[in-house]
Design a binder for these strands. Structure first.
Lengths: 387, 387
DNA sequence: CCTTGTTTGTTCTTCTTCCGGACGAATGCG
DNA sequence: CGCATTCGTCCGGAAGAAGAACAAACAAGG
């Protein structure tokens, strides 16, 4: 961030455009980089030379094919190097902690998950997360010193300034800065964001919304939240609490919500709420996994409840889509895998959004399942590692 | 737009950062520009020299004061030049056409307005608009040849690709490209956008939301629309029809709306609808101006109706704000001047939005009144004139 | 087998751009 | 009047990018 000269910044920009191209398209020749960046052969050659001596890029062993026809000198391919070490992603949910260790291009080397009551005690959950990161590191044959950065997601909005949890949603987390706390435990830079935001980034980069620029990612799990990507960039809002789709009021006289209002959408369609709704009719212990199975098997009661939940979400989404006119809505979270729910969302959006808006919109289930947030956390860590 | 070299682009970027700074802050010295841009003295001097010889910038006659204390050589101020000619803005509403001619920094030289039924016959309205532009030009002592660009706003969403009116909202405008049509009549480049979008830009640049980056502008007039600015940039959506706040459904079994759905917010709170609601109780001919006067005078019936309308809008806005977390909501349009309505909006937003979202939000009436769209149209024209 | 043509990548030179230091200009202050 | 201070410009130098020339590696064709 040192205020370097304008020319240095220019070279930096060009260097970065090469690395991002390599990150996006994989190994390629210098000639391909010329075509991709619009820079001259000689500049690309020089920049790649820099990147090789600095260790960020390596020349691969195998050769490629010439660009046009079969004739001509075969190019040497260059690729981003994965210099020693990697990054970690931490996904903290209401009832689980997931951890992944990945190399610096995002290939997951080790992954762990644990169920625990995160809401109750933030400190304990962070302790556990730190232990899991260390354990996963051992599993990947790495040490804490090999870690460049950690990305994490938390199931609550984060204040833009203090990076701490503002709302009273998580009782055991009040006024805590999750990133600082985990940083204290690991001694490595930690970057935190909202779970829905990171899920949106993951589905955008590697999931169901690849290539989109305007996207709404809805996470349906213990809570209900949205990650909103507009113009290819995450929209966080003036104070960092955008995307609170779950706290749109749908019932003036509804249940009191943990956010302080009443009748929030989240009081109708969170996973715990749906389980509570279904349990009396089933004499087996129900879990999210179980109702997803019952849904797949065609159980009428489960289908009705999930479909209704999807419709309620779609009703609120339709209003949002009327205002934002996005290309894609991705339905994710643990319940995003239910086709009944996703169909309900699609039906309600089609019904309640303007015809033109609905016509321009795709409603798709998430491609990354419940690993979306974890993938997003890894991506966040990679994005923040200085190149 | 020719694919110029990387170095030329760099100089271009720096030149542009100087002109935008001058456009934003008005006349300033080269030393101020150094402080503002972070470039070196000599670079700024060279760039300003270029801009002066190319005619984009002039040295003003009057001198400024030295930056620190009173001692030191007084600086020479430079300012964007307003080379011969100007731009025009055209505001086309459902029942009026307004036109302004301005110089190239946005100072209005001549302005005209006319009431007519625009919806019925698009071609006639555009004929009229072209005549008004020519007339206003004469009033400003200019000819058509002096005009660099025309910005216009239309009271309907525009398709992103064809720049034509998609929805069936305006019966007499179907499949028309307003910009092309006006261009044919004037022979000058014409740029068109949604009325609410241009109102948002105007309030952002010169009105009640100066300095904000995340803004929702609500236009309450013959229709109801929103202009959404996020991160300082207008959000148009995937197909260019974002901001359809008026077509959020608020009553499942409500009136059929001209958009094809039923129970849209716009069927409850447009100006014609409110007038129809009030007329039976008043034995005088009511107009928007009249009910604004009655509102100011404290008439109970008018106040109730406007307040209810504001609450209905605020109810829908609260959902949007929960999702977008903007800094400011500006209530504009002909009815935006009603304090009852604005108060109603504020009350409903406070009630239905999340407490944190509401706390971070200002709800203010528009500062530009019913001229907002016209000012925005002029700004659009200026923005599109090549620098 | 050898020549020709094509694509790739590097080296050398030239040109553009920016920056730092030196210097004149214009003013306030003692 | 001398001095400090700020402003703007000129000059030399450094960094970066592009173009020309050239070497390398392969395919195709005689």
């Amino acid at each position: 961030m040192g205020t370097s000269s304008s020319l240095e910044r220019l070279r930096d920009t060009n260097r970065r455009s090469i690395t991002t191209l390599l990150a996006a398209e994989g190994p390629m020749s210098r000639a391909d980089l010329v075509r991709g960046t619009g820079l001259s052969r000689t500049t690309v050659s020089s920049l790649v030379g820099d990147l090789i001596t600095s260790g960020h890029v390596v020349e691969t062993a195998d050769r490629g094919r010439p660009h046009k026809g079969g004739s001509g000198r075969p190019p040497l391919l260059v690729a981003l190097s994965t210099p020693g070490g990697g990054v970690a992603g931490v996904d903290i949910g209401h009832r689980h902690v997931r951890v992944a260790v990945a190399d610096r291009v995002g290939a997951v080397l080790a992954e762990e998950a644990a169920d625990l009551d995160v809401d109750e005690d933030g400190a304990a959950a962070l302790d556990r997360a730190a232990r899991m990161v260390r354990h996963a590191l051992r599993g990947a044959g790495l040490g804490v010193g090999d870690l460049h950065a950690v990305g994490m997601c938390v199931p609550a909005p984060l204040d833009r300034r203090s990076a701490s949890i503002r709302t009273g949603i998580l009782p055991g987390w009040r006024e805590l800065s999750p990133a600082d706390e985990l940083h204290r435990r690991l001694g490595i830079p930690v970057f935190a964001d909202n779970d829905a935001n990171l899920g949106a980034l993951a589905e955008l980069g590697q999931g169901a919304a690849r290539g989109a620029t305007d996207l709404v990612y809805v996470k349906v799990a213990s809570g209900l939240g949205a990650g909103i990507v507009l113009g290819g960039r995450l929209h966080r809002g003036a104070s960092g609490i955008a995307g609170e789709l779950g706290h749109v009021q749908v019932d003036e006289a509804g249940q009191v919500c943990r956010c302080g209002n009443r009748g929030c959408l989240e009081t109708l369609v969170s996973a715990p709420r749906l389980l509570a709704l279904l349990r009396p009719a089933y004499d087996e212990p129900l879990s999210v996994e179980r109702i997803l199975a019952l849904d797949g098997a065609g159980d009428a009661g489960v289908r009705r409840v999930l479909s209704d939940a999807g419709r309620a979400i779609g009703r609120a989404l339709a209003d949002l889509c009327n205002n934002l006119n996005p290309e894609v809505v991705v339905v994710g979270g643990s319940l995003g895998g239910s086709t009944s729910l996703t169909d309900g969302v699609r039906a309600a959006v089609d019904r309640y959004a303007q015809p033109e808006t609905a016509a321009a919109l795709r409603v798709v289930p998430g491609a990354l399942g419940d690993r979306a947030e974890l993938v997003g956390a890894v991506s966040l860590a990679i994005a923040r590692v200085s190149v």
